[in-house]
Design a binder for these strands. Sequence first.
DNA 1: GTCTATAATTTGATAGAC
DNA 2: GTCTATCAAATTATAGAC
Lengths: 204, 204
Amino acid sequence: MGEIGLNTEENIRNAAHKIFHQKGFDGTSVQDIATEAGTTKSMVNYYFRTKEKLFSEIFHDEFRNLFSSIGGFLRADLPLKQKIEKIVELDIDRLIGMPDLPIFILTEVHHNPEIVFNTMENLPVEIVLNVLDNQIKDEAAKGIIRFIKARDLMLNIQALTIFPFLGKPMLMKIFGMDETAFMEMLQQRKKEVPEIIWNSIKKI
Amino acid sequence: MGEIGLNTEENIRNAAHKIFHQKGFDGTSVQDIATEAGTTKSMVNYYFRTKEKLFSEIFHDEFRNLFSSIGGFLRADLPLKQKIEKIVELDIDRLIGMPDLPIFILTEVHHNPEIVFNTMENLPVEIVLNVLDNQIKDEAAKGIIRFIKARDLMLNIQALTIFPFLGKPMLMKIFGMDETAFMEMLQQRKKEVPEIIWNSIKKI
DNA sequence: GTCTATAATTTGATAGAC
DNA sequence: GTCTATCAAATTATAGAC
């Protein structure tokens, strides 16, 4: 149902965000969104023309979200060890606030690549990776760490932080955790993941 | 199109497997499956009654796949270090052969939990975890490793092995890899992931 | 077992009154 | 801007001939 005080367009946008995240593009009907927004299909089409255009707007915002916070930190003037600690803490906190963002992105990339890759703008990720690569070479030359590709380092960090959110329902079932236990585990991981990563590259 | 030499039922099953993996339950129509199998909608319904029943059969098989190979190894009489190496190698090789299994499972758990949790049988995973927990306590008492919950150890291993498969299209785009580069990375990870894990728990 | 025909709904999207 | 009415196409599933 639409929030009081918001206009119809905003209600539809919020409803679409919620339902698309829950059911995915293919599982969502325009009627679902209209009902959730407390209005009609016609209104959805009036404001957004097609289901696909509406989806693209939502997806575009979410996709930018995915790459938002990290960029700044990777450029900052900090030793690698502290960067890793900050990235993990920031990422886990951010994902706690939007826990089904990763699965939303992944499913749509897999099921509707045409829509998704049209929506994606060019990401300036190479530059950030280069900055990180240089810092790694620098600290490796000083004997602080072994050499590792920035690509592999980021992949390992993201794997250890994001994977628990992706597998959440399965993990809870398999390991017999409730919501509280899951949250405790996440808080623990803010400390443990940076340790794992650092142990894998430190030399001293 | 259906393979020559197989009967219609088998053709439908193979087609369903393929299309459900590509498009998911919501994105797949019975017509899609019939066309892929080289037959008609009626035949699909004749053999499997409903789209949902057909999906359940496919999903059930795939879900058992997910927990198949690892169980035996976890029980085996091997030092933890070797078990970790074997699990990672086995898992990566298995996933190379069925690279969209993880995303298939994850999306359906998220979008169609009712169907999925009806399909899931009770998994005897606690027993395996207990075995692993005891071995960890044992090696920790001997001073070989620090203590860690079997749950956390398995989560970290699976995160580092499965995540690259989940993010494959995104990773290839972001990191500018082609299929060959991606496969090379996976082969590398068979060595690197066990090292990361072992470094995170070893004491000597 | 296999097909065509068709029923009953639901889908995305539009037309037109107000 | 918002609604009702409606369209054309697609959906799952069944009936019935062979």
